[in-house]
Design a binder for these strands. Structure first.
Lengths: 233, 233
DNA sequence: CGGGCAGTTGACCCCGCTCAAGCGCGGTGG
DNA sequence: CCACCGCGCTTGAGCGGGGTCAACTGCCCG
């Protein structure tokens, strides 16, 4: 886990983030002073499930996955975070240990802000506090949706939904491929199924001309039909 | 849906709730002035999924279930709230419509506090605001746990877990029965399975002397063994 | 007494998980 | 430069958990 001081990229992360838009100039300077910025490579772990987290993290560049480890070490991915996103706050605010492991899946530049600083802002800047409140409640709504999806939809439906969700969250590159590179196993951990099932269903989708596959590059060809597959509700 | 003004029970709900402990005397009086208290019967709906919620609710007495409606109207219960609990805040804070329906399962006395009042407190009482933050993040952690449970555990394991969870949350009455009365269908909606599966597994548990069944009264006989069943992680 | 709903039980079968074998590609070392 | 290795990916076979459907019971209530 290589960590390099890199203040320049770090300022970028503040500008990107909705959460920090409402800081005053003074607060902004204080933040720059107190935070530290590190570079991470794919596979690096930011923190482990069950560990105490003593600050929040914001992303200037790259993508991380948040997952819980279950039976036989099988990963269940509950969320991603990308440029402009923050994470780690759940554990601090609920005063519990981390409920997920956070691992880098695309080389990233991530800032660390000590929890004292974070808590101080929450208490003294109500705009910031309301933004945080909104964020955590939004994530709660998404988690609730996830629960009913996994409980009631078929794997096929969930896979279609996940593909659309990745499309919305990460968009596409010049060739039209999803702007996130996941192994089949990671997709399985996201959908909540076995790796083999993901492979079979992706092949089916390809045969039906819904998607194009080239190794880890996935291109959505027929979004309307994919929506029809997952919108059973 | 019978609603009766009932100020006396309502004061009780404020005293019960952790969330309101930190209000000043002045704030407490203001709250009593602005809130309204209503009585609900089993089956009454407090608000529907997809509707706008314009205040938060706190419970003086009774139990409600929060559920999402899925395929064929199948309910997925995501949470309960009981005496001292508050709900409805997620929708207000995330500025979205309600993501769940809230229905009474045990006759209840529930207060309504307009969102302007709620938001005002959040902005002007940082203790209150921190409490709310903690609550929403705690719920988020529970939702994440729920996701991996449903994705990776068997129905048998989940049912055992749910029984223990009900035991922790609602305790037992004088005869040792769980202090919450649920239909088999509701248990199924909680576990995320079919009603018939719940019935079969409950019978199994009974045959193994893990529980005692008498209609909707459930009594846990061997908590240690139930824990062993659900703790596969 | 009859209707309706919750609960129960049995039969059936399909989705999706597991296991096992084979393939393709990139990296490494001789 | 090629041979080997290992990991990620793919495909097939088999089977079992659990969902669905249907029939029946018991109980409450009009």
């Amino acid at each position: 886990m290589k960590k390099i001081e890199n203040q320049q990229v770090c300022d970028f992360c503040i500008q990107q983030s909705d959460i920090f838009r409402h800081l005053t100039q003074e607060e902004f300077s204080e933040m720059s002073y107190n935070k530290s910025c590190n570079l991470y490579k794919r596979g690096d772990v930011v923190y482990h499930e069950g560990n105490r987290v003593n600050g929040i993290y914001c992303i200037g560049k790259g993508i991380v996955k948040h997952y819980k480890t279950g039976i036989d070490g099988k990963e269940q991915i509950v969320r991603f975070s990308k440029k402009g996103g923050i994470f780690g706050f759940r554990s601090i605010l609920s005063e519990e240990v981390a409920c997920t492991t956070t691992k880098v899946i695309e080389d990233a530049s991530i800032c660390f802000i000590p929890s004292e600083q974070f808590i101080y802002w929450l208490k003294h800047n109500s705009d910031f506090s309301m933004k945080m409140m909104k964020l955590s409640c939004k994530e709660l709504g998404e988690a609730n949706q996830y629960i009913i999806d996994i409980a009631q939809k078929s794997v096929r439906e969930r896979l279609a939904e996940i593909l659309l969700l990745l499309n919305d969250n990460f968009g596409t590159d010049a060739e039209g491929n999803l702007n996130i590179s996941l192994t089949r196993e990671e997709i399985a951990g996201l959908v909540g199924t076995a790796t083999e099932s993901v492979i079979r269903l992706l092949s089916e989708f390809k045969a039906d001309n819904l998607i194009e596959l080239d190794r880890r590059h996935i291109k959505l060809l027929n979004i309307k039909q994919l929506k029809r597959i997952c919108d059973v509700f």
